[in-house]
Amino acid sequence: MSGRIVVVAMRCEECGFDFADVTSAVASGEIVARAESFASVLDRADPEAGPRRVGGRWTTLEYGGHVRDMLVVQRERVLMARMHDVPEATPMGRDERAEWAEYEGLDASELARQVRDCADWLARTFSLLGPDHWQRRLVYTYPERAERTLEWLAANVVHELVHHEMDIRHNLRTGQEGRS
């Protein structure tokens, strides 16, 4: 598979995110800005609402926990791609973490702080990459197995932040908890 770089989604049909808008020049700033926006919405979540799924949708706290964990996992993937030639990104177990109740009992404001902190940490890691590092590759297995660059990975992080902010805004607007 070496040398095969596949850009899966240039534009997300659900949230309108365009991967081409995130380049190495703006990635760190976009991660911090989008994480701040996500965390600000999470801060407004009703701390008394508690987790309750509707129609299989994740709850606001599950989205918050997922985003926090995604930021940590993506940072480790960046470091792994710097240390090894085209390593495989191990799946993070996003659905399993929710099923295992990893996100039950979380405090929305504490989770918002953690999202901000993890985003700052990941953005710093990206900001330390030299021009030649942005094209380092790793094998990403979702939604299909393909080699991706670290620049694509940064855009994917921003997409996750944008998309899941849309999800929690939907939850808060409709009074529902849950995952689309």
Rank of each mutant, 00 (worst) to 15 (best):
residue 5 I to N: 06
residue 143 P to W: 04
residue 86 V to F: 11
residue 123 A to G: 05
residue 146 A to H: 10
residue 96 E to W: 11
residue 67 V to E: 00
residue 155 A to M: 13
residue 42 L to H: 03
residue 168 I to C: 12
residue 140 Y to W: 10
residue 123 A to M: 06
residue 150 L to A: 06
residue 14 E to Q: 09
residue 131 P to L: 12
residue 172 L to P: 11
residue 164 H to I: 15
residue 118 C to D: 08
residue 64 G to E: 03
residue 92 M to Y: 14
residue 136 R to T: 09
residue 8 V to Q: 13
residue 152 W to R: 05
residue 139 V to T: 13
residue 86 V to D: 14
residue 178 G to M: 07
residue 110 E to D: 15
residue 159 H to A: 10
residue 67 V to I: 10
residue 94 R to V: 02
residue 37 S to K: 09
residue 151 E to T: 09
residue 39 A to N: 01
residue 138 L to Q: 08
residue 168 I to D: 05
residue 81 A to V: 12
residue 79 L to M: 11
residue 40 S to W: 08
residue 123 A to P: 01
residue 93 G to A: 10
residue 148 R to M: 12
residue 176 Q to Y: 04
residue 94 R to E: 12
residue 83 M to C: 11
residue 16 G to N: 03
residue 68 R to G: 00
residue 16 G to C: 10
residue 163 H to S: 09
residue 179 R to Q: 12
residue 19 F to N: 07
residue 80 M to I: 00
residue 32 V to S: 00
residue 80 M to Q: 09
residue 107 D to P: 01
residue 113 R to H: 09
residue 174 T to I: 02
residue 44 R to M: 08
residue 10 M to A: 09
residue 59 T to V: 02
residue 152 W to D: 05
residue 81 A to C: 14
residue 160 E to T: 12
residue 94 R to Y: 10
residue 165 E to I: 00
residue 65 G to W: 02
residue 164 H to M: 13
residue 151 E to H: 06
residue 17 F to D: 00
residue 9 A to Y: 12
residue 44 R to S: 14
residue 50 G to C: 05
residue 1 M to I: 10
residue 133 H to R: 11
residue 53 R to G: 05
residue 171 N to S: 04
residue 113 R to C: 09
residue 102 E to T: 11
residue 148 R to N: 04
residue 16 G to P: 09
residue 95 D to Q: 14
residue 135 Q to W: 06
residue 10 M to W: 05
residue 154 A to I: 03
residue 98 A to S: 14
residue 129 L to A: 08
residue 139 V to Y: 03
